[in-house]
Design a protein around this nucleic acid. Structure first.
Length: 492
RNA sequence: CGGGAUGUAGCGUAGCCCGGUUAUCGCGCCUGGUUUGGGACCAGGAGGUCGCAAGUUCGAAUCUUGCCAUCCCGACCA
């Protein structure tokens, strides 16, 4: 078991570099830890983004865009939020360069051009958005305000890891305002459900929905809900969060509304986000030694078609047959790539598209053409079958559904096999060291114990699962009484 | 910022200990040809501030010092 858990994020560097994302911008220390998203990787992100966007709109949200720069005075208004992000901010202090008198041809920061107030490059947008909401919300009739933003943010982490923790990343952040606590709480869990649905049904990655402990909570939130996924190396990954912000931001930015009784009240808030980290989750949850395995629903190309030529003879005939299949698949809204590039040989293409994770590959040569059949290979199991050309498009359509299902089932089985109930401290450590995965154990509910466990076992409480089964027990570390198990794991 | 390692062509590397012709090999790239059912082959070709700077020396990729950068581990985190 433990031997199978070998895949670490680093093992995928081949695909990061060759296909999806280049690790850094240039040989330039100042932008280290940023990422260049290549077209193929971006197409993947776009598909994920488009689907999420649809789901946000279906739940009544609208998109807006707020500034990249947050004046320091706004940033510090909500104290806990500011404190939480203070150590990882990029700050703009000047607005002009000038020629350096000592170094011809070089530029220097013009000391005359110092900004009166520093601008924080957003690590998250609560501050600037809530400052704006103050002007948008006066009456209960303005509520709820349901807004999402697709943007980039910057968090100057001491250590970066491609996809999982880059200095700049793309994400969406929803920021909503509500008249009542109940409504805001409902929104928080509703959006968590949207995330869970998206990640499971489209990315085919099973998740545990849960709530964070106080230690792991978003800075400035009353409660943080999360979805936690398990990677093939047995480490957990937080895949998305949805925060109930209470009235913290409303109070910090003085956002009040007049209720039906003509009384002033502070609004209730939520925020929620997922990022390009999801791409990392996708890679680490599904890849094998041959490369990526992409779920059909979000794969940039769902099908790739490779013609196999023999000299020039009957090439037209071959291509005509394939073009008809391409047209049939496109008519079914299947994203298909017809690769008739003659610079690369079929074997090269097979390997290439396997590495890129294209779910279905079809190959047609003269031998097949004469028999009116075509070879169909699926990426997830690597099975190849020969199918009659007649009706192959509907075969492929159902195969894509089958692959989507199979990838999820495989990941689900792996995840379920790697949630282990543990009742002693010795076993707790043994499982983490030898088998990894989630450990379901009793915890006395104190931040002190949580912190000690983190120190000693390097494992954190990933979440307290929603609808958690209540069960009398004793804390695996302190031996104090506990009434439910929580999920521990070593995490990215 | 602490601990460890490493910098040689676009990528991966040999050479360094023990200084001495024109810096090794593979992949990739360019040209021509033959090929195409699982990462083609033949022939020819281009590509190098040996991380940077200083020092030692007749002579430095190789030795010395300083600096810079990268990677891994830790603190931080989506």
């Amino acid at each position: 078991m433990s031997k199978e858990i070998t895949k670490r994020a680093d093992d995928y560097s081949q695909w990061y570099n060759d296909l999806v994302i280049k690790s850094d911008l240039a040989d330039h220390s100042a932008v280290r830890g940023c990422m260049v998203i290549k077209p193929y990787g971006y197409a993947l992100w776009e598909n994920m983004r488009d689907q999420l966007d649809k789901m946000f709109k279906a739940t009544g949200h609208m998109n807006a865009y707020f500034p990249l720069f947050v004046p320091k005075s706004l940033f510090e208004a909500e104290e806990k939020n500011a404190e939480g992000f203070a150590k990882e901010c990029a700050i703009v202090t000047h607005y002009r360069l000038k020629n350096d008198p000592d170094k011809p041809g070089k530029l220097m920061v013009d000391p005359e051009a110092k900004l009166e107030e520093e601008l924080i490059i957003r690590p998250t947008s609560e501050a600037i958005i809530w400052n704006t909401y103050r002007g948008w919300i006066q009456s209960h009739r303005d509520l709820p305000l349901l807004i999402n933003q697709w943007a980039n943010v910057v968090r100057w982490e001491m250590r970066t890891r491609l996809f999982l923790r880059t200095a700049e990343f793309l994400w969406q952040e929803g920021h909503t305002a509500h008249a009542t606590k109940e409504e805001a709480l409902e929104e928080t869990t509703k959006m968590l459900d949207v995330y869970a649905t998206f990640v499971e049904e489209f990315m085919a990655v099973p998740v545990v929905k849960g709530i964070k402990t106080a230690n792991e909570r978003f800075a400035g939130a009353e409660d943080t809900y999360c979805i936690e996924a398990l990677m093939q190396d047995g480490k957990a990954l937080q895949a998305g969060t949805s925060h109930f912000l209470g009235q913290n931001f409303a109070k910090a930015f003085d956002v009040q509304f007049t209720n039906k009784e003509n009384k002033l009240e502070y609004v209730w808030a939520t925020s929620w986000g997922v990022s390009t980290r999801l791409i990392g989750a996708l890679i680490m949850a599904h890849s094998d030694d041959q490369g990526l395995i992409l779920p059909p629903k979000i794969a940039p190309h769902q099908v790739v078609i490779v013609p196999i030529y023999k000299g020039e003879e009957r090439k037209v005939e071959l291509n005509d047959a394939l073009k008809k299949i391409v047209a049939d698949l496109q008519a079914m809204n299947i994203r298909v790539k017809f690769d008739d590039n003659e610079n690369n040989r079929p074997g090269w293409k097979f390997a290439q598209y396997e590495m890129q994770g294209v779910p279905v590959r079809m190959a047609l040569g003269l031998r097949d053409l004469d028999n009116a059949v075509i070879e169909v290979a699926r990426r997830d199991t690597k099975e190849k079958t020969t199918v009659a050309i007649e009706g192959v498009s509907s075969y492929v359509q159902s195969l894509l559904d089958e692959i989507q299902k199979n990838i999820f089932e495989k990941a689900l089985q792996f995840r379920n096999e790697n949630i282990r109930k543990v009742d002693t401290w010795e076993e707790f450590n043994k499982v983490l060291d030898n088998e990894a995965g989630f450990v379901s154990a009793h915890w006395d509910g104190t931040p002190e114990t949580e912190e000690k466990i983190k120190q000693e076992a390097k494992a954190t409480i990933r979440c307290i699962p929603l609808n958690n089964e209540q069960e009398e027990g004793v804390c695996v570390f302190s031996g104090k009484p506990s009434k439910e198990r929580v999920l521990f794991a070593r995490a990215y």
